[in-house]
Design a protein around this nucleic acid. Structure first.
Lengths: 151, 151
DNA sequence: GTATATGCAAAGAATTTGCACTATG
DNA sequence: CATAGTGCAAATTCTTTGCATATAC
């Protein structure tokens, strides 16, 4: 997989690609580090940053800027779009194909990537919303869950 | 305009909304500050951050995360999508209406915002690309134009 | 006069860089 | 061995916060 894309398969890179490709949780650098350190105790975030940038350049992963505070990574090769829940901060896959054919050209610009970002409140969080929750004042950022769920 | 959205019209807010609403350059906090300080020398970035967060909450502007390094703001009320040029880092409007009707509901999730982000190289930068430019090594981030164009 | 808005300075957090060390072929 | 990958620590930059001052109704 790595060789076919011109990337030297090191121990770290294989482990990183494994996690990104098998999960659909759209991990962040931080969550990847938290998970992978168990397996590779010396793994640094520097390596994660450079490796994921390399993977993105080689088309092995896509980087998502749907979460305003952290970059998310997607290792599923099929082009698809995403939903971001402002409450639980999960990123979910959306399977509509609309606009995905626009890769190539648009208004004379060369289009390399198309990202469809839908933002709102996911089904799970909607059902948990209570009147008391709606009534409370908006949380400060540091009280919000800045940390996304594992991986 | 401000009163109708439940926002007290202060001097700063009027000036900020004026710039964001009249330009189509999708300004950042930094570029807004650079422009507005000429008119309001004491204007702080703190005020810009809190004001634009307020405007976004009231639906007066939309915040775009298409530029991975800075939040962009869009004051044009009509729903539209965006193109990001990886070379000159401009954000351009795109007039396709695809997926804009998805606001409301999707897979049971409540959708408040839809963002269509197209990324690539804009028409102007394509025509400027020379063989020597293509041959040069990728620039370091600090050598890239981190600063977006004015406003 | 009380509530809200503004602004400064400091803190917080994600990302990038410099450089030394290590592993790969 | 030479090249390329890794990792630590420091630096950079965007964003948020705490609190003091100023403004508005």
């Amino acid at each position: 997989m790595l060789q076919t894309h011109g990337v030297k398969p090191t121990y770290q890179r294989l482990a990183i690609l494994g996690v990104v490709a098998e999960t659909r949780l759209h991990p962040t650098i931080r969550s990847l580090h938290a998970v992978l350190v168990k397996q590779i105790p010396t793994l640094s975030k520097t390596t994660l940053y450079s490796t994921l940038e390399l993977f993105a350049a080689k088309g092995l992963v896509r980087s998502l800027t749907i979460d305003p505070s952290e970059v998310r990574y997607d290792g599923v090769p099929e082009l698809h779009h995403h939903f971001y829940c402002a409450v639980c901060r999960r990123v979910l896959d959306v399977d509509i194909t609309c606009a995905t054919g626009r890769i190539g050209e648009l208004h004379g610009h060369r289009v390399d990537e198309v990202h469809g970002y839908f933002k709102g409140v996911c089904r799970d969080c909607r059902s948990k919303e209570t009147r008391s929750a709606r009534r409370s004042s908006p949380p400060k950022l540091k009280d919000k869950l800045r940390r996304s769920p594992h991986v």
